[in-house]
Design a protein around this nucleic acid. Structure first.
Length: 413
DNA sequence: AACTAGGCT
DNA sequence: GTATAAGCCTAGTTG
């Protein structure tokens, strides 16, 4: 096999990271199978109750896991209103986002939503993970580097999508534990993608926010609504947060409206105000699309390229989709470059600082370690320091560190 | 294999 | 409104 030719900095990063990823995969992460089985039992009981309730409300037995059968029950048998319900290629959508619109219309909706959540948790995690542990009760994922933006991906099992959002989902994280005498340390970059946006776009307000270490979403809300930052309401902050995410994804009024419940017009107005306040972000978007159209690719701060010939497509949807990718790829990809650099550097030195400590996972902007109880503070300091200083930008990178006996029970240290 | 759905950052 | 927020992986149903 010929050695891979290294053409640029991103290729070198990926090559240097490869052996690090191998070590992480080999280390694995300890799983508390007993705890998982206990949750599985509770979830299975609940599912039985829920399916009974759903059958009672629908006056029939059917396969709740079949979107087509569920749509028939909801819209043809129970005659729930279809106004405003999205359509898929095959009929009315039964996605959670659509069912949420029907919550008040029929008591069957709530149990369906809960059923869906618990089925997902049971089938994807509770049933599957215990089957994949090795003889030492450890899970070994496989990391891949060949993604569109430079992020890692994780498979068999994917340990980058372990639940956290719901109450039951969060319980699952408690199954990821440290061995006896050890703790898990979690270190995650705070708002790394928006900090990358601030650096790349040189947007004044964004840079100022991060220099002052202000709450970015509250500040955005304050500026758009024209109120003092400490008078921003929860709703206002929530909307601003959606806009900030939208910037990273290549915002559209429709997408923002979907994500927040704003009307299309309100969303459009909100975005216009945002760009008035952040002219350099508007410029970044414009310049990036132009660059992509002329060169056929975009690139990250460290030169990682993504080919995007579709930005010149005559097909409107194809072109617009490519434009959003062009906006997002340098942001997401730069964040990926930064944490990869940090991982390489940490791997180089961790053995000297704490020989028994190990890096065990990467979840895009977070690293997970296990460290002997007595060395947690030392390892945490080293990790934080390395991540924050890995590649100085025009805004500080900040890292939140937590530690605890399990991934679900880490607390700030 | 296509489609729908949903877990994470 | 033609379409519609970025990147992943996995599971179940359907034909």
């Amino acid at each position: 096999m010929p050695k891979k030719v290294i053409k640029n900095q991103a290729d070198k990063i990926d090559a240097d990271l490869d052996p690090v990823l191998k070590r992480i995969e080999n280390a694995g992460v300890l799983l508390d199978t007993k705890w998982l089985n206990k949750i599985n039992k509770e979830v299975s009981d609940k599912l039985l109750t829920l399916s009974g309730l759903i059958y009672k409300h629908s006056h029939r037995d059917f396969n709740i896991n079949s979107p087509s059968q569920l749509a028939t029950v909801l819209f043809e048998k129970l005659h729930l209103p279809t106004a405003g319900i999205a359509k898929t290629k095959t009929g009315f959508s039964t996605a959670a986002s659509e069912l949420n619109k029907l919550k008040g219309a029929h008591p069957i909706i709530e149990p369906i939503l809960e059923y869906r959540e618990l089925e997902k948790l049971r089938n994807t995690y509770l049933e599957t993970l215990p089957k994949l542990v090795d003889k030492d009760s450890r899970l070994h994922t496989h990391f891949s580097q060949n993604t569109a933006t430079g992020r890692l991906s994780s498979s068999e099992p994917n340990l980058q999508n372990i639940p956290i959002r719901t109450e039951t989902g969060e319980k699952l994280r408690h199954a990821f534990i440290a061995p006896e005498g050890f703790e898990l340390i979690s270190s995650d970059y705070s708002q790394v993608e928006l900090r990358v946006v601030a650096h790349i776009s040189q947007d004044k307000r964004l840079i100022d926010t991060f220099l002052k270490n202000e709450d970015i979403h509250a500040r955005t809300a304050a500026e758009i609504e024209g109120v003092p930052i400490d008078e921003v309401t929860k709703t206002q902050r929530h909307k601003a947060k959606a806009v900030n995410f939208g910037i990273i994804y290549g915002i559209s009024a429709h997408g923002l409206a979907e994500g927040t419940g704003m009307s299309y017009g309100e969303a459009k107005e909100y975005i216009d105000k945002y760009f008035t306040l952040h002219p350099n972000i508007k410029k970044y978007i414009k310049d990036t699309i132009l660059f992509a159209q002329q060169k056929g690719f975009v690139q990250t701060l460290l030169g990682r390229k993504r080919e995007l010939p579709e930005v010149n497509s005559n097909i409107v949807n194809v072109r617009l989709a490519a434009e959003r990718m062009a906006i997002n790829a340098p942001i997401q990809g730069t964040a990926a470059d930064l944490i990869k650099l940090a991982m390489i550097e940490i791997d180089k030195n961790l053995g000297k600082i704490s020989p028994k400590s190990k890096m065990v996972l990467q979840i895009h902007d977070e690293l997970l370690f296990e460290a002997p109880e007595g060395e947690v503070a030392k390892v945490a300091d080293f990790v934080k320091e390395t991540m924050e200083n890995i590649y100085p930008l025009d805004v500080p990178l900040t890292v939140n560190i937590e530690a605890g006996p399990s991934w679900g029970a880490t607390k700030p240290i």
